[in-house]
Design a protein around this nucleic acid. Structure first.
Lengths: 90, 90
DNA sequence: TGGACAGGCAAGTGGCTGCTTGCCTATAGT
DNA sequence: ACTATAGGCAAGCAGCCACTTGCCTGTCCA
C-alpha cells in the first residue's frame, strides 16, 4: 500500500479524484495532460489505477462501457498513526 | 518522502525508533536481526537510514564514534491530510 | 602507538517497476 | 452490421533501487 503512494503520478491521480470523484480513465488522462502537464499514456495511467485499486485506495464501478474511479481514503488513516502513536489531534 | 516509506525495512526501522528512540546503527542492526528476523547487512541498513534521513524522518546526532538516530514524525502529519482533507478527528 | 570498534564511501549486480507497443474485448450510436 | 469509443491483456524494454563487496576514516582503550 505504501508502494502505491510512492509514485508521483499515482499521488496526482489521488489528487484528481479528491477534487473530482468518480472520473473515468479518459477523463483522468485528459486532466493529467492538461492540468499537470503529465505526458503519461493511457496504458500507463490505467496501470497506475490498477495499483491504486489493488492497494484499496481506489474502488471502481462499471456502468456500460464506462468505468468510474472513486477514491477511498480509509486505508490512509492508520498508515501514519502507526508512528504517530494514534494521537488524532496531533 | 513517500518513497522512503515504500520499503518494508525502512518502516521497520521507524517502528524500532518509535519503540526506542536514539539507537545507533549497530543497535538497529541487532534489533532487526533478532526481533524481525531481518537478514539485512550493516551497509543495507545504513543506506536505509540515509534515505530516511534525506526524507527528514530521521535526524542524527553524533557523539564520539557513535551516531544516534532519532525519529521525526513531523513530516508524516501532512502527507495523508493531503487526501483526507485536513479532518483531524477522522 | 597499535588494535578493536563504529561508521562511511564507492563500484557493481540482480530484481523490481514504470512505460511502451501491439492487439483484443465490449458497449453505444447509426 | 458497421464504426467509433472506452477499456483490457500481455510481452518487452529501460531505469531505478536495494543489496553486496571491498576498502577507508575516525574514535575509544590499553
Amino acid at each position: 500500500m505504501f508502494k502505491a503512494l510512492a509514485d508521483p503520478t499515482r499521488r496526482i491521480l489521488l489528487d484528481e479524484l479528491t477534487e473530482r470523484d468518480g472520473q473515468t480513465l479518459f477523463e483522468l488522462c485528459g486532466r493529467l495532460a492538461t492540468k499537470h502537464g503529465s505526458s503519461s499514456s493511457r496504458q500507463a495511467i490505467s496501470q497506475h489505477l490498477d495499483v491504486l485499486e489493488a492497494a484499496g485506495l481506489v474502488v471502481t464501478r462499471r456502468d456500460g462501457r464506462y468505468k468510474f474511479h472513486h477514491i477511498d481514503t480509509d486505508p490512509l488513516r492508520p498508515i501514519v498513526a502507526r508512528w504517530l502513536g494514534d494521537e488524532p489531534g496531533g
